[in-house]
């Protein structure tokens, strides 16, 4: 497995891990009762806004740990630049990720139109945000493995 594949696998796992830990923490500490009953916009705004820096910082820390462990085990350095293959894969992954987020956004708006609770709209938005991150990493992995 190449460095790029390993890096994306770590990114995928860290995305899932950070999201799960974050939401378990939020639900345990700030939610009493059902998640869909929460109509406080400040709560949902804070959940989304705090998730972003938590994801960024968590991913940076896990990436540093991965790079150190990988260097110790394989003595392989991280590529210092992105070449044309990396850029092409990044473009395709960004396209897939954006398409998924847009689908999630449209579904969240549709949930409002058909009279579903406000909380459901935010839950769908958060899920599409996390799914788009996951698809970003899965697309990278798939394209590095399969080629095009």
């Amino acid at each position: 497995m190449s460095f790029q594949e390993k890096r994306n696998l770590v990114s995928l796992l860290s995305n899932l891990l950070i999201s799960i830990i974050y939401f378990v923490y939020v639900i345990q500490n700030y939610v009493s009762g059902s998640l869909t009953d929460i109509t406080d916009f400040r709560f949902w705004g804070a959940v989304i806004l705090i998730l972003i820096p938590v994801q960024i910082v968590g991913k940076i820390i896990l990436h540093i740990i991965f790079t150190i462990i990988n260097k110790i085990i394989t003595n392989e350095d991280e590529p210092s630049f992105s070449d044309e293959l990396d850029k092409l894969i990044e473009l395709k992954a960004a396209r897939n990720s954006l398409i998924l987020f847009m689908i999630g956004f449209v579904i969240s708006m549709a949930s409002l139109v058909i009279g579903m609770p406000i909380a459901l709209m935010f839950i769908i938005l958060i899920l599409s945000l996390i799914s788009s991150e996951v698809i970003w990493d899965v697309s990278h992995l798939y394209l590095y493995r399969k080629g095009f």
């Binding site: 460095f3 790029q4 630049f81 044309e84 590095y144 399969k146 080629g147």
Partner: peptide, 14 residues
């Protein structure tokens, strides 16, 4: 380029 690109080309994936 990176080694990954050479690997992909040799395998006919890119």
């Amino acid at each position: 380029v990176t080694r990954q690109t050479i690997v992909s080309m040799e395998k006919g994936k890119y």
